[in-house]
Write a protein that binds this DNA or RNA. Structure first.
Lengths: 350, 350
DNA sequence: GATTTTAACGAAAACGTTTTCGATTTGTGA
DNA sequence: TCACAAATCGAAAACGTTTTCGTTAAAATC
């Protein structure tokens, strides 16, 4: 019933614990014979090293912590999948925690992970996080930390992101290229950097193309559980406020799909009357009608990349090498589908 | 830089490590003065007990393992959320692994978790799992194990499930009650118990109501990444094969939404021509048009309940009490929406 | 004042592993 | 034969806690 220990193996074979340990780890100063002996007995007894003891000795747990604002979200679920898969490859386990977009919780969870002495931490910030002492604390303790997606520029650690501003610019530029003159934007909440950057990308594309920026064309939504409904509501409001809008760039697909639904119901033709571009390439976007043009946000790859970077830093940390924070920007692509009309401007289609 | 230890505190205060340890844990044989002294210094030094050492001493890690077939799935994501939230409340951390519906991976992961010496394991089976030695091994080692949702009846451990058969029966019975005479079923894959049970519930409702069971009305789909497409395809086939079907019970919402989409495109009126009931109550079901009648499958509650049961068993195991496996069946409810027509049979509506 | 009780503390073992360093044995070359 | 190197092993310390049990001093009891 009790787990097998090195001591038990040693006693059975009449050798020392030391030799057993070395044999199992293929130390050069153990003869082939004893190695074989030890390994065989270990196998038949189904010996498993006591991780607790190993951790204590080696001062590492082969475990990392992951704090994520929401789990039930296709993008983050994909990130989790990417992290877990990559971690497993490298022999690391992942402890997962959900901050629920709350700074207080996030802080507590950082504390939990530090107490647990994980080898490193991956985090995507809660919307509520405007202070970062808890993260600086992690860094000061010399614990590897990598942020992804929802980051704080001010925190001095590695980050894996997409260029939200550029992607939004691309999306808006595409709307302009296909002939849209009056382009609205459904933006995300005011706080997280992502929705700010997407908004800025939208704005810059307008001005770069000589189009006026009109604040009344920008609608805000929380992008929480009610995203779909928010999309519908904003679409409704937009139709009431303006009759000349011919394109919308929307912060996230679910909102876009809500808007699309409202337009469909009201008989507004997409893309003939209004062209729509979403963000994130949720699988439903390729499936609804009309299919949604959107920016592909590589969740799985982001998770994978974030872990890879963290892994490097963990290794460096073990060797007492200092780590130079690195910012990795993943490519996004515009996925053109039915919700945007074809360009009428042939010159642009050379 | 190096973490503070009990020893350091002891030396600073000129007392023994023992007393420091006891003071921090409020042992009665330490004076109030020393307790205050110790606690204060511990706080200012930001002392955190070394989990590795604590684990080694106490033989528990306050950590559980979770193996799940897919993370990127609204139901499972909800389950994860429920588990993580409840675990955190009780001071437990969750290590998450994804089996990818593969028996081989699942086996390896069980092994990993056993090596890690987690205090207990939560698992939802991979579709590919038809052998259960790896799970029996866990049980034999006396490690608490709770299965949820995708379970194996044959394994002697606690389980948290819904009554798939009953829920399917309810769904089908509802279709019958509102007047459907020719009811089709889009079922899931042949293996997992869930889709078998849902199929059986469908069948039993038919025969209990004197309706013939017609195998040609049963369509199979894998319910994987292509669910939506499968729904469309099956809908198409159904329209080709039969012109008299007036109701469909569908294994899962995403497939149902695919079917709905196809029917919409082909001008088939839902619910006038065909009534549809889905399964799981995905949030999109309340949002598409027409909204989908479905069985609500309580993912968050399932996660929460599964952890609670595991927690009980972990506590029992610590006290060397034997654990009697318990099967907890969560209630499901039929959520009536637009995709099913109102009953014309007033007698049934008393 | 002698004895017992209580309060407060500490020594030491234990958890199971890893690793350093020294000891022993065997083999090698002169 | 001697010196030295190589091969093989083990003793012991260390990781940082927890907990048992004993010790001491002070307080209480008679």
């Amino acid at each position: 019933m009790k787990p097998i220990t090195l001591k038990q193996i040693a006693e059975q074979l009449n050798i020392s614990v030391t030799t057993v340990s070395k044999a199992l780890k293929d130390y050069p100063d153990v003869s082939k014979k004893t190695k074989a002996m030890v390994k065989e007995l270990a196998k038949t007894l189904n010996y498993r090293p006591n991780t607790f003891a190993v951790n204590l000795r080696t001062k590492e747990s082969k475990t990392i912590g992951l704090i994520i604002p929401v789990i039930v979200h296709h993008f983050f679920a994909n990130v989790i999948k990417g992290i877990v898969a990559q971690a497993e490859k490298k022999g690391y386990l992942v402890i997962i925690l959900q901050s629920n977009e709350s700074y207080e919780l996030e802080k507590k969870q950082i504390d939990l992970l530090m107490s647990q002495r994980v080898d490193g931490i991956l985090i995507s910030l809660a919307n509520g996080s405007a202070r970062f002492d808890h993260l600086n604390e992690v860094i000061n303790q010399g614990k590897p930390l990598v942020m992804f997606d929802k980051i704080a520029k001010i925190v001095n650690c590695s980050k894996v992101i997409i260029d939200d501003r550029k992607a939004a610019y691309t999306a808006t530029q595409y709307l302009i290229d296909i002939g849209c003159k009056r382009i609205a934007h459904f933006r995300g909440p005011l706080l997280p950097q992502n929705s700010i950057d997407r908004f800025l990308g939208y704005k810059k594309a307008l001005t770069d193309n000589g189009l006026p920026y009109d604040p009344s064309l920008v609608y805000i939504c929380e992008c929480g559980d009610m995203s779909f409904e928010e999309g519908k509501m904003n679409a409704k409001k937009l139709l009431e406020d303006h009759d000349d809008v011919d394109g919308i760039f929307i912060n996230t697909d679910l909102v876009a799909i809500g808007a699309l639904n409202e337009f469909n119901n009201q008989g507004i033709k997409i893309p003939e009357d209004i062209s729509i571009v979403g963000f994130s390439n949720w699988f439903m976007s390729s499936v609804i009608s009309p299919t949604l043009t959107t920016i592909d946000q590589p969740g799985y790859l982001m998770g994978k990349t974030a872990f890879k970077q963290l892994f490097k830093e963990i290794k460096a940390h073990k060797k007492n090498k200092s780590i130079i924070p690195k910012i990795i920007t993943l490519e996004t692509v515009l996925v053109k589908r039915e919700s945007t009309k074809k360009s009428t401007n042939t010159i642009l289609e050379i």
